[in-house]
Computed example of a mutant assay.
Amino acid sequence: MAFAWKAAGITYNRYLAVAARVVRRSLKEGPRLQAERRGEMDLRFAKWQNGKQGEVKNLSEANAAAASELAAQEAKSS
């Protein structure tokens, strides 16, 4: 089987993230800590309206807030 990640039902990007995490965890203590810091990401986005940039937000925090709002709306409708 040429593409095990496809058979597992994950995307190539997810496959790479898992592989990178495994390699980082297999390193000795000093190099492992440096590699783990390089592996951290902080994604931000901003909504643009009428040619002006809105507030810059952290993607993970925005996703968590949206998920909690959705859960609250579903709880109200039940």
Rank of each mutant, 00 (worst) to 15 (best):
W5R: 06
K76L: 13
I10G: 03
A46I: 02
K57R: 15
Q49W: 01
K57C: 06
R32W: 01
L59R: 06
E29C: 00
A7K: 14
A71R: 14
E61G: 09
E61T: 06
G39H: 03
A35D: 02
R25C: 03
E36D: 06
Q49M: 10
Y15I: 00
Q53V: 02
R32I: 00
K76A: 14
E55S: 10
G51R: 05
K57Q: 11
G51Y: 02
Y12M: 09
R44C: 09
V18I: 15
V56H: 05
S60T: 05
K52N: 04
N13L: 12
K6C: 05
W48C: 10
G9A: 12
G9L: 08
A71I: 07
V18W: 07
S68F: 05
R25D: 08
S68M: 14
R25T: 00
E40V: 03
A8K: 15
A72L: 12
V56W: 13
F45C: 09
S26R: 10
G30I: 00
K52M: 05
A4G: 13
R25F: 03
V22F: 10
A7V: 08
A8H: 08
F3V: 09
N63C: 10
F45T: 02
G9H: 10
K57M: 11
G9V: 05
I10L: 13
S77T: 08
A72D: 13
V23I: 12
V22K: 14
T11C: 12
R21G: 04
Q73W: 07
Q34M: 05
V56P: 03
N58Y: 01
Q53N: 02
V22R: 15
Q34E: 09
E74M: 14
R25M: 08
E69T: 09
L16Y: 02
S77V: 09
F45N: 04
Q73P: 00
V56A: 13
G30W: 00
G30M: 02
A64R: 13
A4S: 14
R21N: 07
L70F: 12
M41F: 04
K76R: 14
M1D: 12
G39N: 07
A19S: 07
P31I: 03
G30N: 03
N50Y: 05
Q34V: 02
K6E: 11
K28F: 01
L27R: 05
T11F: 06
I10M: 15
N13Q: 13
F45Q: 03
A65T: 08
A8V: 04
Q53R: 14
E36M: 09
A71M: 13
A17M: 06
W5V: 02
E40N: 06
A2E: 15
R21D: 08
Y12P: 01
D42K: 13
F3W: 12
K52W: 01
A17V: 01
L43P: 01
E61N: 11
A46N: 04
A75S: 12
A46Y: 04
A67K: 15
A4R: 14
K28M: 03
E69K: 14
R14L: 10
M1V: 10
Q53E: 14
L16G: 03
E55R: 11
A8E: 13
A71H: 08
R21M: 07
E29M: 02
A20T: 04
A75N: 09
A71D: 12
A19R: 13
S78G: 10
A20D: 07
